[in-house]
Structure formats: C-alpha cells, structure tokens
Design a protein around this nucleic acid. Structure first.
Lengths: 246, 246
DNA sequence: GCAAAAGTGTTGTCCTTACACCCATGC
DNA sequence: GCATGGGTGTAAGGACAACACTTTTGC
C-alpha cells in the first residue's frame, strides 16, 4: 500500500460515540459549484461567461460559479447561481463532474462541482444586465480562467452524449420553433450534418411535438410550421429504455 | 432573488490581486470519497461493505470511504481506498455523483463524492483479511449507515445504464469465463432474462472475445468454452458511437 | 419568375427478435 | 440413458440510411 489512510482507525471492537469529534479531525476545503450554461442563437452554440475579477486572470472569462454555503445543498447552490444570473427558476440543470486538482485554484484548495445548464438565450436576455456577463460562441472560446476550459469541454462532451439519449435540445429553443431550427441545433451540437427527411421522421415518430398551427414569420422563403415540445408527455414516458449498445 | 450570494463582490472595475485572501473568506467543509464496489459471485451481484464504527450506526454497514487529503485529487483518493481494501491498482473506477445534503453526516458538514468500482471477487478475496469487511448480496441489502443506501442505489442505476453502453461486465468476471457466466451477469444486473442465442450473437458480433481454446472444468454437464475479453482492442475502438436514442 | 427553404415516400440494408433441436459431459 | 446446460440458424419485422422532386413564400 503506497499511500496512507487519512481515516481515524477505531480501536479494536470499540465504537465511536462522538461523530463530531471524529469529523473535526479531518481536513476541510472550499467547495464551489460552476455552471456551464449553454444557449443557442444564430445557429450557434453559446456559453454564458463572466469576466474574471482576479488580476491573475485579467482579460479572461470564466464559468459562472459560487461557493456553496454551510447550510446549502450543492444542487441548490447551482440553482441559486442560475437564479441570480438569469432570474429563472425552472431551468434545466444537471450535475456533470467534480474537479478537484489540489492546485486548480490560485487562492487555495477549492473543489468544484461542474453543472451543465441549457436555456433559451432570448428568454433570459433581459436578466443579463451586467455587461461583464456575455454569451460567447462556443466554438471560438480559447483560454478561460482557472481550469474552466477543461470543465467546459467536459460539459460539452456530456451534452453531446446526453442530447442523444434525451431530448434536451428543446430547453435551448424558444417555446415555439420550426423543425429547421431544431435540426440546426442538433447539427451544431453534434457537429454533423443530418438528412432532413430522416430527421423529421425521427421526431415525428417520437410523437412529442405539438403542431401549434402557426407558421414562421418574416422569413424570406416559405415559412415552416411552428411546434411546441410536449414536456409533460415526455416526463411521463421517459422511464422506458432498454438495449445493450456498446 | 430569494437567496443571497456568498461570493465576495468586487468593487466596480477593480481587480482582485490576492486570491488567497479572497478564498479564505469562503466557507469550508469536509470532503470524502465513498466507493460502491460491485462484485459478482454465485450468480448474484455483490457489494463490498464495511461495518460502521459509529455507535449511532451500530450493526449497520456502510460503503468504503475515506477523507480526501489536503494535497490529494479526489479520484486519487478513491483509488487509494480501493488499493487499501483490495490491494489492486488497476481497478475499474468511475465517479458517479456528489452527495451534499448539509445533514447527511451526523458529525458535521461532510460532502461526499460517490464512486463506482467493479471487480472480480475471487481475484481480490485474499486481500480482504479484516472480518469487518464483507461482500453482501446486493438484493438483500436493506438499511445502511449515513445516506449510503441512497448512494448505493444511485450507483446501481448508474451501473445498469453504463453496462448497456460499455462492456463493463468483464471487470466483474475472472479472466477466463464462459458465455453462460457472462449472460448470468447481465441478467442479474439488468434484472431481465435474455435469449441465449441472441445474447451470444450480440457478443460474437462485437468481436471482442478471445476464444482461449479451454473448457470449463468440474461442471456436471457439457462444459462451455472459456473466453477472454479483449480489453486492448476495446480501448482502441471505444471512441466511436453515434445515434440519437431517446 | 426566381431564389430559398419547406414538405414529403420509397427502397434496401441491417439489426433485433422470436423460436427448437441436437450435442457433449457427468453421474 | 438421463439430466443438464452448451451450442447453433433462420425467418419476420422494425429501424435506419440513402435518395429527388414539388410547394410555398418573399422579393
């Protein structure tokens, strides 16, 4: 065994009566939640970033993050960050991964839990007053503060995988959208081109789209039909999946 | 906005020069890694548990966990736990989820990162000298210490999903195994019955099994062929996957 | 009437499923 | 020779991929 254990070892057969004293002997560290907030606009995947306020990272951007409070669940912390930044309560949010390199933060030992959130940039633009917060084109992002580039790339991989398992993409679109918009979204995230007919068939067969009867407006060509996503129906049926698929 | 932010807000336009002072103002907490270590034996899914040494959880079992040290990455901590308990270095291990309810530990605020590990019970049985550590039949587990039952169930769901995406099951089997053993494993984990011919075809078509030319011994019926899993080939080809599959 | 995108069906291939019989071994 | 599980093939149905032409609108 090459490393030592940091547990307190109990004495033979004895039970520990005071868990508080036990726990106090353990090391402590700071914990944050960082959110990769994805949007879709201009046929491009976007990420919401904030300008770093550390001189060390002058001119760099970072993910939106904050500390977890003493009495706060970390999922709640992530929702709080979203609420503070976008004003939205019912946003899609999911935990992705923990990043814990001891030296990942220049200010000391800070462990962070990465979250991925998807939202419609239009719906939330009014909330973003602070001009130090911006939507950035995902593909043009180069360096970020801390290890946030690494975190962002993990979140992106996660998104690519997840969007093929679950219809998350609708969270990125307006309430009413055309099939063209939906396909653009999938093509942008997955980085592939898809056959229009097959794409439409795929979503038609899911029976999760509601035809609003409305048409696109202000387009310089034949307008497409506008659909809504049937979130309720999806929630009810999503607990069915099978198949081994390596 | 219903909650306050715990970040220090920077003064207008000013950059923070000293990240250490900034970070020191944040709350700290204890962080642990807990491993759900799955094995397979007697045609049953097993979990490695240790008897709790807290009087509060007398007679209860818990997952194998430990603190993360000040200078230690949390993935390393999880590998360390495995190393200490099983003596094995190259074990399958993956991060599953963070559990962070403020009151989940009776000794204070302890955030834990759950890991899932898969290993062959036979290969590791020699390492488990301590009689306070045991393999438990997964299906008969009732109450566990802390929130470990919840963690274990999340790890099990994760395993069910993951084993359908990647051929993890081989980590639970001996180096050489029969197709019957492999199928039993999948049936046990997924809780379904499968058609034997189709199952074999599925794995044959993957071309990841190596026929050792050997046969089972000591079975009271026609012995099956023994195969090895081609881990190397799998590692090389695993970066290919597509398809939207809701 | 022209540019630009919307909308739509068919066919072949492959994958998945369902299903039944003979074979090799231990006892 | 009998009990037990090992090993194998085929046919039908469903999913996916490839492919081209007509329609509607704005200008």
């Amino acid at each position: 065994m090459s490393k030592i254990s940091y547990s307190i070892k109990k004495k033979e057969g004895a039970l520990i009566k005071d868990p508080v004293t036990l726990v106090k002997s353990y090391p402590k560290m700071h914990v944050t939640a960082d959110c990769a907030i994805f949007g879709f606009d201009d046929n491009e995947l976007k990420v919401l970033l904030i300008r770093s306020d550390l001189e060390l990272y002058k001119d760099l951007w970072s993910l939106l993050g904050d500390n977890i409070a003493d009495d706060e669940d970390i999922d709640s912390a992530a929702y709080r960050i979203l609420m503070e930044r976008t004003g939205m309560q019912d946003v899609y949010l999911e935990q992705v991964k923990v990043f814990s390199k001891p030296d990942r933060h220049p200010g000391g030992r800070v462990l962070t839990v990465a979250y991925c959130s998807l939202l419609n940039t239009r719906h939330h633009e009014l909330m973003i007053h602070d001009n130090e917060i911006h939507w950035h084109s995902f593909s043009s992002i180069e360096e970020l503060a801390f290890d946030h580039k690494e975190i962002l790339m993990e979140c992106y991989s996660w998104l690519q995988k997840r969007i093929q398992e679950h219809p998350l993409g609708f969270n990125l679109l307006p309430e009413k959208f055309s099939l063209r918009e939906l396909q653009n979204l999938y093509e942008a995230i997955l980085g592939v081109r898809m056959d229009r007919r097959n794409f439409r068939k795929k979503f038609a067969s899911m029976k999760l789209l509601i035809d609003t009867g409305e048409l696109e407006a202000d387009v310089p060509h034949r307008p497409g039909k506008l659909y809504k996503f049937n979130f309720d129906k999806y929630e009810k049926q999503k607990n069915n999946w099978t198949g081994i698929d390596f």
